[in-house]
């Protein structure tokens, strides 16, 4: 038997909204430790790695390891049937289930709804993600990052991110012209709107804006976002999910031919 409950459906709704436009389907790997999802987008340019730890759930029971093939658009539709304040319970039989149930209970217990979703057989490659010491690790307000990606995407398809000890610069150019946004490191590191940079060595990397704009769908999950960069390897964009997990987006760089 697999059963996991969250006190507030809101967090799971935001998680689905953060991945449903980038991924069509993915395997939810359920173990004693929690739920993990790892999948590449259809074009194999980006990879999403989601982790929800079991100790972050109000109730969590996983008698046997379980892999659930989920159509994310379907799950997002079901999640949208819940109110943010509803308690959500996910239930599945653990001997190779072909369906999963979602139960939403209103906070005043007057409304209980349940939805059953068919599961899929998804044959997906699992990738080994090496631990990396990054040249630059930037923490910044997630709303700021979302705004930069959206604004600059109007000027060009590619975003050049340069990071040095002075700060981080986002640049683009296209038919319309060019645009640059520079953020200096802030002095007061522990405020939500702080920009902090840990730099081993300067980096300059180029990425496709459209994927970054998919990643920023995770903005409602966390007020801060962490960008980790080293030359010629994928960018890591990380949003924490409360104190129960995180979403990591990896994006392959564009390199000059």
């Amino acid at each position: 038997m697999f059963e996991a409950s969250l006190a507030q459906s809101a967090i799971l709704k935001k998680v689905l909204d953060a991945i449903k436009d980038l991924l069509n389907e993915a395997n939810f790997e359920c173990t004693d430790d929690g739920i993990k999802v790892q999948a590449m987008d259809n074009s194999h340019v980006s990879l999403v790695s989601l982790e929800l730890r079991s100790d972050g759930f109000e109730k969590y029971r996983c008698d046997r390891n379980l892999s659930m093939g989920v159509n994310l658009a379907s799950m997002a539709k079901i999640m949208r049937c819940s109110s943010n304040s509803d308690k959500v319970t996910i239930k599945a039989q653990d001997d190779n289930p072909d369906k999963v149930s979602f139960i939403f209970e209103s906070s005043n217990q007057e409304r209980i709804s349940d939805y059953e979703m068919k599961l899929m057989d998804i044959d997906a490659d699992q990738l080994g993600i090496p631990d990396t010491e990054y040249s630059c690790v930037v923490k910044m307000p997630s709303a700021e990052f979302a705004r930069i990606c959206k604004d600059l995407n109007q000027f060009g398809e590619s975003l050049v991110i340069s990071c040095s000890k002075e700060g981080i610069k986002f640049s683009t150019s296209g038919d319309l012209g060019s645009a640059n946004v520079k953020l200096a490191q802030t002095t007061d590191a522990d405020k939500d709107d702080a920009v902090t940079i840990e730099m081993r060595s300067p980096v300059t990397l180029t990425f496709a804006c459209r994927y970054l704009n998919h990643f920023t769908k995770a903005t409602p999950l966390s007020s801060q976002v962490q960008l980790s960069m080293s030359d010629e390897i994928p960018l890591l964009v990380e949003y924490r999910i409360g104190d129960m997990g995180c979403i990591k987006y990896y994006l392959a760089p564009k390199i000059d031919d």
Binding site: H44, V45, L127, G128, Y250, K254, I255, D257
Partner: peptide, 14 residues
């Protein structure tokens, strides 16, 4: 012109 690389090039298939 910058060419888009694939994520699978960087992470090894398990």
């Amino acid at each position: 012109m910058a060419l888009q690389t694939s994520i699978a090039e960087y992470f090894n298939l398990r």
